[in-house]
Nucleic acid binder design. Structure first.
Lengths: 124, 124
DNA sequence: CGGTATCCACTGAGATACTG
DNA sequence: CAGTATCTCAGTGGATACCG
């Protein structure tokens, strides 16, 4: 159980399909508004976006800056502490890339491999 | 979408609450029988264990060895290719450990931190 | 022993509508 | 614009029973 805990901690943060998408966007683009994130991640609903951002904020990975304007404006960015996620994301991504190739070798072309360059590299 | 794909690949494998537990056990103990895994992971159901193992096998991460005996005997182990997961697990675990401390600093002691040593280190 | 099949309860997440 | 509230439904996973 204790083994799982530590690993699970990372998992809980990264998991949830959307967190990674959000993190990736913020990492690449810097500061983004709520609506910009919505546009950048077409299939996410307001509800999910708000929920995931709230969790990331709680974990001190994402910073939320509210401007007292009309109409409202809220900007999100990765905290300094949040930058520590980069190597984790990168490691997972690297493995993922290699694994897709491995799966192809084993099972052929069926995987919806769109032959795109590894844009995750942008994370640097 | 393409960004997500690569990252998501890793996520899909690791995700699912149980995969990590299984992997960790096999990594630490080497070969294990179905029933041993059940005992080692008390809260997992047969159904889930079987399902997760099947997925890991499909991904060439876990090897399944069937002995034609009565009563049946099946042994699971990490494939050579599967060993490549170790650095990924380790990176995530390391971050997880650090993050638990960070959360404590921010929010205090409430987290069910059992003050255990990082057993994940066994993965080495 | 090592599963599979079936049924069921619960949760995650989409759609929609409303608010400050 | 940036959310919150509700309602709903599909999929995940638990419990149980059965099979080779």
């Amino acid at each position: 159980m204790t083994v799982y805990c530590k690993f699970g901690t990372a998992l809980d943060i990264l998991t949830g399909k959307w967190k990674s998408l959000i993190l990736l966007r913020l990492l690449n683009n810097g500061t983004m508004r709520f609506s910009e994130l919505q546009k950048a991640i077409p299939d996410i609903s307001k509800k999910m976006l708000a929920q995931q951002l709230k969790e990331l904020e709680y974990h001190d990975i994402v910073h939320r800056e509210v401007y007292a304007e009309i109409p409202p404006k809220v900007e999100y960015s990765i905290t300094e502490y949040g930058q520590l996620m980069k190597p984790v994301l990168q490691t997972m991504s690297d493995w993922g890339v290699g694994h897709m190739q491995h799966m192809q070798k084993l099972y052929g072309e069926e995987d919806e491999a769109e032959a795109n360059p590894s844009s995750l590299r942008k994370i640097e």
